[in-house]
Write a protein that binds this DNA or RNA. Sequence first.
DNA 1: ATGCCTATATACCGCTCGGTATGAATAGCG
DNA 2: CGCTATTCATACCGAGCGGTATATAGGCAT
Lengths: 204, 204
Amino acid sequence: MNSVCSISAPKGRPREFDIDVALGKALLVFWRNGYEAASMTELTSAMGITKPSLYAAFGNKEALFNKALDLYEREKLAYMTSALDAPSARGVAERLLRGALEMQMSTCDPKGCLGVISAATCGAEAETIKAAVVKRRASSEAALIRRFEEAQAAGELPEGMTPAALTRFLFAILQGLALQGGSGATCTELSELVATSMAVWPTK
Amino acid sequence: MNSVCSISAPKGRPREFDIDVALGKALLVFWRNGYEAASMTELTSAMGITKPSLYAAFGNKEALFNKALDLYEREKLAYMTSALDAPSARGVAERLLRGALEMQMSTCDPKGCLGVISAATCGAEAETIKAAVVKRRASSEAALIRRFEEAQAAGELPEGMTPAALTRFLFAILQGLALQGGSGATCTELSELVATSMAVWPTK
DNA sequence: ATGCCTATATACCGCTCGGTATGAATAGCG
DNA sequence: CGCTATTCATACCGAGCGGTATATAGGCAT
């Protein structure tokens, strides 16, 4: 009886595809096209499965997107949380900018930022999608604000510059970086943008 | 014979709607929804005309969008060219930021920037749309770069900071401003973003 | 071997999309 | 008046959309 140690006993016919691999393929399609423009036909063909399999495994298109968004945050946005460990506010900003730059310069992944693309893509149908993305961004923002509050307590911030304002300023640059990256900017242009941002970053 | 002074003698049945008013309505729909998500049904209903009238007057959806984009640049982005008249690079930046902020805070117009929305919305179908928007942005960028070259010649820029890099930095902030404005940021948050940007703007 | 349960594949659903054929209405011109 | 030219309104087109009904294939326990 070795069935005890195994994860479970899947009773019916076993699934013929790897659900995580398929989700990764779906992520790439959403990333390239945005939520609305990614059709089920393109998704299923990229994932190598048929529509009923997709619906059985993921629910529907919106649920699939949310799971892809989870994967995106977990794998591609890991640098955002790890950046908070930097010893100074300036170090946090630099890590965030360099992390975002590295992502845009990666040749294997699509350009642009899935979050930025999805938030800007605002068909009336996709209102709930937009809300989900904005909500996720808000939690990242909150974490960054908390980190900058520590920095402020440590006396790192110039007077009259609130942690929240600095956070939104940095986010604006990151969003601009992703947008320009998705619009055909070259790697040198983007790294110049990062360099300029670091050059003007406030020092008390 | 007073037909000489008139523009022309339109022979057939006269058009029953004002083509410029209709274009303005179409612009609002594109602005709110982006190119792809703006359906012909919503467009015609907002414009108060039927589909055949729309096609006869504007060609097709893409041509309508381009004409709406013309109108948008002419009316809503006028501050971008007038900002170049500011006496210093810093003044140019301030005028651009304040102009963008004013647009986001206007209560009558949709939030966000039509250009930003349309460039980020990149279904494979809308590739040509995206290219048109990016091309227009490039010409604005070029104008700003030229203005900052003058500033550099006047000794306004810090060493090692090229006009092109400063332009893309400023554009990134403007894009971030539009994106946050389109994602539900409040007016005070956006004006804080502008204030922070001006606070860190390089002074030689 | 026989049910049982699940995944697969095909074919299909209603709906909306951008775009158009068609015929009636309305003007100028002879 | 008739003729021509243009716009208007209705109704329609093929195609693609997200999503599903149905039937078959394939592992498990009994």
